[in-house]
Amino acid sequence: MSTLHVLSHSPFSDTRLDSCLRILGRGDALLLCGDAVYALQQQSSTLEDKTVFALEEDLQARNIECPQWAVAIDYPAFVDLSIQYDKVNSWL
């Protein structure tokens, strides 16, 4: 079983990403959207060895370049991911 974890809070002001990373399984993935894409700006990223997707429009809006170890996606790809993974857990 695999879970796509969706985050939209900035990791600099919120603990959701920390909690999520603590329980992230090997087959799971992260989808960063909204201010959660600021996680890609972190100096020493703990995300590099994870499967990370980021919503392209939110990267563009914030002038953030997608690092090589992450994948920028659009909405059709978001829909595909939500099917590819067994469930979607949004950290509301």
Binding site: M1, T3, R22, I23, G25, K87, N89, S90, L92
Partner: peptide, 17 residues
Amino acid sequence: AEDIRTLIDRYDQVITL
């Protein structure tokens, strides 16, 4: 943390509030 990972796997859907 390991138990929670397994727990989430066991359920069909999850809502985190």
